[in-house]
């Protein structure tokens, strides 16, 4: 199988960490992965985008023009990448900050997830990226949830390992919403 996804937001939303985590999980499962980040000159507030390709065989291009799935955390990212999603693809949108109606696509599945509200509900607004990741993994099946939990250890510096349970909870919350169990 081959999975590709573009995750985009603004700097500080944790987009690159989410991408890293997904990559680590795939790697743990013995798959091939490429993680290609691009970001603005600013550390915070600029754009942050990463493209992840997960494959059983060769990854091929680390650059993807028409991703099968797009995860956007802010309006600017939807404006920039919304049109690029492959026909039949999936667009996961942070409906807390993004006007979903601005994406005029009938040929893709649109999944609004109120990521900021969910993260706030869990008591930590910084978990937006984990909610997004959970939603993506639930809808794509790119990796096992168990692998994500293991990958958190690899992706997070040791001093932040105490936050792992909270991260796992956020991932699960995102997944549940995306699958419509709580919608």
């Amino acid at each position: 199988m081959r999975y590709d996804v573009v995750i985009a937001g603004f700097g500080g939303q944790g987009v690159l960490l989410a991408g890293n985590l997904l990559s680590y999980a795939a790697l743990e499962e013995g798959k091939n992965v490429s993680y290609y980040p691009s970001y603005g000159v600013e550390k915070r507030g600029g754009s942050a985008t990463c493209t992840i390709v997960i494959a059983d065989g060769a990854v091929g291009s680390p650059v993807v023009g028409h991703p099968s799935m797009l995860v956007v955390l802010n309006q600017a990212s939807l404006d920039r990448f919304g049109a690029s999603v492959r026909t039949g693809g999936v667009c996961i949108i942070n409906s807390s900050l993004v006007d979903v109606a601005t994406l005029d696509r009938k040929d893709v599945k649109i999944v609004p997830v109120p990521m900021n509200e969910i993260a706030l509900g869990l008591g930590d607004p910084r978990m937006v990226n984990m909610v997004a990741l959970g939603a993506y993994v639930a809808l794509s099946g790119a990796v096992e949830f168990a692998s994500l939990a293991g990958a958190l250890k690899e992706a997070l510096p040791e001093r932040n390992h105490r936050f792992i349970p909270a991260n796992v909870k956020a991932i699960e919350a995102g997944a549940e919403i995306a699958l419509g169990k709580k919608a």
């Binding site: 091939n32 992965v33 490429s34 993680y35 290609y36 980040p37 680390p62």
Partner: peptide
């Protein structure tokens, strides 16, 4: 691209 991307 080859400098910033991560792979196995």
């Amino acid at each position: 691209v080859v400098g910033q991307m991560k792979e196995a």
